Measured scan of single mutants.
Amino acid sequence: SLEELLKLARHALRHGEEIHVLDRVITDEHEIKRLIEELERLI
């Protein structure tokens, strides 16, 4: 769900981890922040 993805993204950002989204691995902090902003808009 989007909520789950948002939780994962926030966790990854906090802990400096990578996040796997739709067969992509996002490691860049700015990309993760952008993902979080997009998800928050959708929810």
Rank of each mutant, 00 (worst) to 15 (best):
E18Q: 12
E31L: 08
D28L: 11
T27S: 14
L6C: 02
E40C: 04
D23P: 03
K33F: 10
T27H: 10
I32Y: 02
E4A: 12
D28A: 11
E40Q: 06
L42W: 07
H15E: 08
L35V: 06
R10H: 11
T27D: 07
H11V: 05
E37P: 01
V25Y: 07
L5Y: 05
H20Q: 12
E29N: 09
H30T: 13
E17F: 13
H11A: 09
L2G: 01
E29G: 10
E38G: 06
A9H: 01
E4H: 11
S1D: 15
L5M: 10
I32G: 01
I43K: 02
R41E: 06
D23K: 02
E37C: 03
E29H: 15
L2E: 03
H20C: 04
G16C: 05
I32L: 13
L8V: 06
E29A: 15
I19L: 15
G16K: 13
H30F: 12
V25H: 08
E38P: 00
I36P: 00
R10Y: 14
L42A: 09
L6R: 02
I43T: 04
E17C: 09
I36R: 01
R34A: 15
E40T: 07
R24A: 06
R10E: 09
D23L: 04
L2P: 05
L8Q: 10
R41K: 12
V25P: 05
L42Q: 09
H30D: 15
E37K: 12
H30W: 15
L35Q: 01
L42S: 06
L39H: 00
V25C: 04
D23C: 04
L35N: 00
G16S: 07
L2W: 12
I26M: 08
H30V: 12
R10V: 09
A12H: 02
T27N: 11
E31K: 06
L22F: 14
V21N: 03
A9D: 00
R14H: 13
E4T: 10
L35T: 02
R34N: 11
I26F: 15
G16N: 10
L13Y: 06
V25R: 05
R14S: 14
H30Q: 14
E38C: 08
E4V: 11
L22M: 13
G16M: 06
E18R: 08
H11Q: 10
R41C: 05
V25L: 09
L8A: 11
H11W: 08
A9L: 14
R41N: 08
E17G: 15
V21T: 07
K33S: 09
E31W: 06
L2H: 05
L2R: 04
L2D: 02
L2S: 03
H30M: 13
I32A: 02
E31S: 08
L42E: 06
L22G: 15
V21D: 03
D28K: 10
L39W: 06
E37Y: 15
L42H: 05
T27M: 07
K33I: 14
E3Q: 10
I26R: 02
E40R: 06
E29T: 13
S1C: 10
E4L: 12
I26Y: 15
L5V: 05
L8M: 11
H30L: 12
E29S: 14
E37T: 11
I36V: 07
L5P: 00
E31M: 09
R14K: 15
R14W: 12
L22T: 07
L8P: 00
R24T: 07
L2M: 08
T27A: 11
R10W: 13
E37H: 13
K33E: 10
K7Y: 08
R10G: 02
E31G: 07
I19P: 01
L8N: 08
I43R: 03
V25I: 13
E40H: 05
H20T: 13
I19A: 04
E17A: 11
I43E: 02
H20D: 04
A12W: 02
E38F: 14
A12G: 05
V21L: 15
L8H: 07
A12L: 04
E3F: 10
R34F: 09
K7C: 05
E18W: 07
V25E: 04
G16H: 13
I26N: 01
R24F: 08
E38L: 13
H20P: 04
I36E: 00
L22D: 13
E38R: 12
R14D: 14
E18V: 13
L6A: 02
L22E: 11
G16Y: 04
L35W: 11
H11D: 10
S1R: 12
R14Y: 14
E3D: 08
E38W: 15
A12D: 00
I32H: 01
